[in-house]
């Protein structure tokens, strides 16, 4: 059992609140006392995963699990799902809306950024059935 588990709801298309879950997680990990570079990695991935739900996901939930030597993020959404996960992991590939792109999102860098900054990444998704992104970090 992890030391600490916290759940954060994420609302689709709520650009006003977008990023707040990641900022809360960053603050919590600082209080716990993880190394700054480790916190930067987790915060970056939390943000990209959070933005993916806001942009594409339908409503979702991020679960944070913290242990002494690792942190895990489990992000689930009820969105349209990913048709081709291999393609979604390619830098530059994006299905973001015009609205998202105008705000500087949808550069096709979200999942590749997560992959580069995490120690494990599992994406479970089916078209029409939502997406689950599991991200692991070893402290």
């Amino acid at each position: 059992m992890p030391n600490l588990t916290k759940r954060y709801p994420i609302k689709a298309r709520d650009y006003l609140k977008a990023g707040e879950v990641s900022i809360q997680i960053q603050g919590l990990l600082k209080i716990i006392g993880f190394a700054p570079d480790f916190i930067r990695r987790v915060s970056l991935c939390a943000y990209e995963a959070e933005m993916n739900v806001v942009m594409h996901g339908g409503d979702g939930e991020l679960t944070l699990e913290v242990d002494t030597d690792r942190v895990d993020l489990d992000v689930r959404d009820a969105g349209p799902g990913i048709e081709d996960i291999g393609l979604a992991l390619q830098e530059g590939y994006s299905t973001a809306s015009e609205e998202a792109r105008e705000m500087g999102f949808g550069a096709g860098m979200g999942l590749p950024n997560i992959q580069k900054n995490s120690d494990s990444l599992d994406i479970i998704s089916e078209k029409g059935k939502g997406t689950e992104v599991k991200i692991g970090f070893i402290a």
Partner: peptide, 13 residues
């Protein structure tokens, strides 16, 4: 970019 999401990026980075 001048919308509110730039603040989260600045905080997180």
């Amino acid at each position: 970019q001048s919308h509110q999401n730039i603040v989260a990026v600045a905080v997180l980075r």
